[in-house]
Computed example of a mutant assay.
Amino acid sequence: MLHQTVIQIREQVNKLVPIPLPKLIEGKGAISQTAQVLTELGGVKPLIVTDAMLVKLGIAKHLTDALDAANIAYSLFDEVTPDPTLPLIANGWQRYKQDGCDSVIALGGGSPMDCAKAIAAAAVKNVDARKLVGLLRVRKALPPFIAIPTTAGTGSEATVVAVVTDPEKKQKFTIVDPSLVPAVAIVDPLLMLGLPAKITAETGIDALTHAVESYIGCYATEQTKAYGYDAVKRIFANLPKAYADGSDIEARRQMSIASFNAGVAFTRASIGYVHAIAHQMGGYYHVPHGLANAVLLPHILDFSFENALCRYAELAIAAGLANSEDSQVEAAHKFVAGVKALNKTLNIQAGFPELKANDIPELAKRAVREAYCDYPVPKLMNRAQCEALLHKLVTV
């Protein structure tokens, strides 16, 4: 009862809190416009937040070449690791200050995006990011901020969230504030051509999870449903193509748009139990977020079926899995079956080798607590149900 009451109140509050939409620049070679965009935003010396692998692969060079050509000085912080920790973010903030930066460019997947957002928030508030964990604790405009994704999955280039990890507690936390939405998102499919098939698959299902959880949750509006519906349509049509042929530029482009649209949807309509459990898998075992979502999504779809079947039926139409001749229940079943079939096509693993049965009670406790009164799920899950689900995912 408390959950339902709080969710209803938050639904009304959500309508009163304006969430900006980033300016979207997309298409082949869009990264070449970075210098012009930065100048328009008033940035003079950006901190580039990325990871060492993107530097090694030469992807970061596309960005630095564009800045060099415009004679724009920058500082390169390429120390980002998966699940960025609070100490790592503190190091990035120190670099920002020491090198006299006045703006931030995030280049990479979800981890560089989260790290960059937290660094920018710490810089504008002049406090350690640890103090910004929670809801609406930034409340100040970030320095000029450009997000350039190199995967089609997280949608972080459009969201209000930065996910950070406390290594001592082995737990993930979120910084949530509308000011975290980047001013500009530059989405260039050419940056994604070298993405391995496995990462393409996992990040693609991450985007699908965002679209689905935002669509079936209680906060969904006609606007968020439209973005989520479009994302599901593009993902089912293009993710298998991008997975099978990583050089398919049009499939990459469609997936990058789908990821952005899913990000727009879930940053306004929130998420659900897939993420609540995935966050624990990341915090405890460092399971990549996209992979955790991909493994968990079919199980949560089964769990919520009766409470969300009308929305499932609509998404089945979007995915091209059902038509108007199918009954609502038939279409809903086709959607769940379609997600499971997509996972098989993408060779998504069935469980988590890292998962230890002895950890399950604590993982379930944390996941249920994270979602309760925070996530507008169509069906509440108790701790015993969460434990039972996790036991299915233990692999020998």
Rank of each mutant, 00 (worst) to 15 (best):
M192T: 14
G194A: 13
L195N: 01
L195M: 15
K198C: 05
A201T: 12
E202N: 11
E202T: 13
E202V: 07
T203E: 08
T203L: 04
T203I: 05
T203K: 07
G204P: 00
I205F: 08
D206P: 11
L208N: 00
T209L: 01
A211H: 09
V212M: 04
E213F: 10
S214E: 02
S214R: 01
Y215H: 05
Y215V: 08
I216Q: 01
I216G: 02
G217C: 04
C218W: 05
C218L: 12
A220P: 00
A220I: 07
T221Q: 05
Y227T: 00
Y227M: 06
G228R: 06
D230Y: 10
A231K: 03
V232S: 05
K233Q: 10
L239D: 00
L239C: 04
L239H: 03
Y243M: 10
Y243A: 11
Y243D: 10
Y243Q: 10
A244S: 13
D245C: 12
G246P: 05
G246V: 14
S247T: 14
S247D: 14
S247A: 14
D248C: 14
R252V: 14
I257N: 08
A258E: 00
A258S: 01
S259K: 07
F260E: 00
N261Y: 12
N261H: 11
A262G: 14
A262D: 08
A265W: 07
F266H: 01
T267K: 04
R268H: 06
A269V: 11
G272S: 13
G272D: 13
H275E: 02
H279T: 05
Q280A: 06
G282D: 10
G282T: 08
G282V: 11
Y284H: 13
Y285I: 13
Y285Q: 12
